[in-house]
Each structure stands twice: as structure tokens, then as C-alpha cells.
Nucleic acid binder design. Sequence first.
DNA 1: ACAAGGATACCT
DNA 2: GGTATCCTTGTC
Length: 160
Amino acid sequence: MLGKVLVRSERGRETARVITEVEAYIGENDLACHASRGRTARTQVMYGPAGHWYVYLVYGMHEMLNLVTGPEGWPSAILIRGVEGMSGPGRVTKSLGIGREFNGLLAVPASGLHIEDRGIVVPDRMVKRTPRIGVDYAGPVWAAKPWRFLLNSAPLTNTP
DNA sequence: ACAAGGATACCT
DNA sequence: GGTATCCTTGTC
């Protein structure tokens, strides 16, 4: 998803930003994943088919935007932690006007929020991997998984 | 360094 | 119905 473009459309106005930082949460075994506690009203969307948004509130004030991935029945999602000019997952949603009303919606243009490939090239050597942020509670094994990915320089724009 | 802030999951 | 905890940010 790095280098792909997050597109928010609202009443004919479109805001597009390149995704620069993401984290993976993979399955019930992953103790940092909300689905590690099983299927609940909140985590239900992660058990569904890929391509739907999973949006939840954390710390009582920040909306986290995740895209459901993986096959049906295997709860997994990618948290969008950063877009160009915006660092931090709470700022991503706030700056684009994204809230829990998107939870469960399919990531297609008609829903007002989707992801596009606009030809930006991201070679592997431009991608940095680190452990995920704020997941110490998951224990040393799962907190150490290098499942945070970010661009370590500006992406190469493929000008048509 | 730490408060703000509300939902969630799990307990009684 | 009570409570510990949370995939954070801004201000102290």
C-alpha cells in the first residue's frame, strides 16, 4: 500500500494523499491484533472479505483507519499510520474527515473513500521496516514483529 | 512527563 | 453496573 493514494471524496470535492506509513495486524494469533480476543461486534469486519474499512476509536479521541485484508475468516488488517504531509494515524483521519461512519464500508469510490494506484514507484530499498508502535501490551514476541512499513524518502512520481 | 477522553471487553 | 485498558496527540 505504500505509494498508493488514499482518496477521500466528499460532495464532489476530492482529497488525495500518498500513503507513507502502514502497519500490519495479522490474525487471531497476533496478540497486538484486536481479533486476538476473537470475534466481537467491533472485530467482526476484520473477519469478512478484504477491501472493507475497519475504523475504530482509540483513547477516546482518535479514529484509526484500517483496510481489511486477507481471506474471509482470517481476521487481518492494515492500519494507515501516515500519509504525505501528515504523520500519525489520528491526524490522517482528522485531516481527511474520516470517522467511524466508514466502518464496514467497501473501499470503492462510491463510498467516499478508496485507494488508487497512480503509478508512483516504490522500490524495496525505499521501504523501512520497524516494530509496530504502541503494542508493548502484546508481549515481547508480538511487539517485536517488524510489521511497520514506512517510506524513508520521498516516493518517485511517475509523471505521464 | 502526562492529561484528555470514550469505547471496548471482561469481570462481578 | 464497575473497571482496566487502549494500534494517540498536544500541552505541560
